[in-house]
Design a protein around this nucleic acid. Structure first.
Length: 462
RNA sequence: GGCCCCGUCGUCUAGCGGUAAGGAUCCAUGGUUUUCAUCCAUGUUACAGGAGUUCAAUUCUCCUCGGGGUCACCA
């Protein structure tokens, strides 16, 4: 059974980088019919974990990523951690350290003054004497003084660390008894049955420490996959200050879950030349062995392309639903199909789509100056007048083709090009020079509104 | 600074000793369209540098340079 997990520390919202590792973990679990677990790393009690968890679950829900089982909160597992800490203490694999904070920082200062690596000096490692009074002890693990620790990483390969380069007897429980990060991660990953740890490669240097915990506690080692960072345009680790890193703002901006997930899955991962992946394809094809080794720069150009691709290929009934978040209730609109067909190929986002809808259904209140100058000159108003009369006189006017025929008639009868009627008509209907096909616009707004807009334009520009 | 990771078009990437170094996006141009967008076609742009190994290196090794990450009683 493949078990993966996503273990965010509660920062309030789901971050774009976090989402990608979550997606990778989710996909790998789903591909194997395994489990994708969620754990909130809220051992820092000052933060409100409940809200953070909700924000994350909301985002997952929007994206259609469902986690398995109950959410696990580290803040509620103190007794469990205490048990394992005691075990290590009893087995002599950990010990109480009575070094005060002042003494510790003093030690570090002299070490860095001597250009040495700052590390705990092991003063209480084999301490047998009487502990100093007034110092609550922290618990440290007995780390190996030499030898190698190798991280077998599914993305980066085997990475060898030398104990004397990176290790010291690091703290696994603070003076107040609370366990530290590297300790609880190892304990929880084991207890949750996690078999594949997929996380950012900023955790690579934590991994030897966690391996130590695994070994001390006699746990089986999971497989590690450290995925490279996502960088901002400055080449630095993507952070909250980089803007638009909250996954949910992509919903507001009008991106679809399919597009966002497709975009993210291709950031640092690939499957040959394939660019478009349905959710099913992702679940079928994702494999961490194809994750890149190098960091990628966050750049949303491709997201826009993907989003417009998905919009074009989304059924109108679904689009109508998606547009509800912008206050558009199109489900029962009788010209819904014509309307959505007219704009779905023109918008990069749902938000843009919504404003295109408003542009069409609203009677223009002003006309762009340059458009008026370009289009409403010569006999343009006369042409509009002729066309208006035809609209008024026509028997049946429903489909875009009905309106198109009327335009064709005017063109034929007056011996003019299509542009001669198209341009002024467009300005009359929309107040500007660009937009969807005019026949569609008129079919959507109907005969009366069409005549009204033509009359308005003529009145205003005579 | 120590340790670790990384280095192919601007960006996302394919490549896994022999390729005219491919795709996508972006950008530009042309076509389609009454307009804009879409769509189609075409085009510009990349193996960080230097030594090896080899008949042959973008692919393997080493060095340099560059970028990033991490070094807590934070997570």
């Amino acid at each position: 059974m493949v078990v993966t997990r996503f273990a965010p520390s509660p920062t309030g919202y789901l971050h774009i980088g976090g989402l990608r590792t979550a997606l990778f973990s989710y996909l790998w679990a789903r591909r194997h019919n395994g489990k994708f677990l969620l754990r909130i790393e809220d051992t820092d009690k000052a933060r409100n974990s409940q809200e953070a968890a909700e924000a994350i679950v909301n985002a997952f829900h929007w994206l259609g990523l469902e986690h398995d089982g109950e959410i696990l909160y580290q803040s509620q597992r103190d007794e469990i951690y205490a048990k394992y800490i005691n075990q290590l203490l009893e087995e002599g694999k950990a010990y109480r350290c009575y070094m005060s904070k002042d003494e510790l920082s003093e030690l570090r200062e002299t070490q860095s003054a001597n250009k040495e690596r700052t590390k705990y000096d092991g003063k209480y490692r084999d301490f047998k004497g009487i502990p100093p009074e007034g110092v609550a002890p922290a618990i440290r693990i007995k780390a190996p003084l030499n030898g190698e620790i190798v991280v077998r990483d599914g993305v980066k390969g085997d990475i060898v660390f030398r104990a004397e380069d990176i290790l010291d007897d690091f703290v696994i429980a603070r003076a107040d008894g609370s366990p530290t990060y590297n300790f609880v991660v190892a304990v929880d990953d084991h207890l949750m049955g996690v078999t594949e740890v997929i996380r950012g490669d900023d955790h690579l240097s934590n991994t030897p420490k966690q391996i130590l915990i695994y070994e001390a506690l006699g746990f089986d080692m999971p497989n590690f996959h450290h995925v490279p960072m996502i960088h901002n345009s400055e080449g630095k680790k993507l952070s909250k200050r980089d803007g638009a890193t909250d996954v949910m703002v992509y919903k507001e901006m009008g991106y679809t879950p399919e597009a966002l997930l497709n975009f993210l899955v291709r950031l640092g991962w690939s499957h040959g030349d394939q660019e478009i992946f349905s959710m099913d394809e992702m679940r079928e094809l994702f494999d961490p062995k194809n994750i890149n080794k190098s960091a990628s720069i966050y750049n949303t150009e491709k997201l826009d392309w993907l989003n417009s691709h998905y919009i074009k290929n989304t059924p109108n009934s679904d689009l109508a639903k998606l547009l509800e978040q912008y206050g558009l209730l199109l489900a029962s609109h009788d010209k819904k199909e014509i309307l959505l067909d007219a704009i779905k190929e023109r918008a990069k986002t749902l938000k843009e789509m919504a404003s295109l809808v408003y542009e069409i259904i609203s009677t223009p209140t002003y006309y762009e100056q340059t458009a008026v100058e370009k289009a409403l000159k010569g006999n343009a108003l006369e042409i509009l007048n002729v066309f208006g009369a035809k609209v008024s006189a026509a028997k049946e006017l429903h489909l875009p083709s009905d309106y198109h025929h009327l335009m064709q008639e005017v063109v034929d009868e007056m011996g003019i090009g299509f542009g001669k009627i198209g341009q002024p008509l467009r300005v009359a209907l929309l107040g500007k020079m660009s937009g969807p096909g005019l026949d569609s616009v008129m079919a959507i707004i109907g005969r009366d509104e069409t005549m009204l807009r033509i009359a308005n334009a003529i009145a205003k520009h005579s």
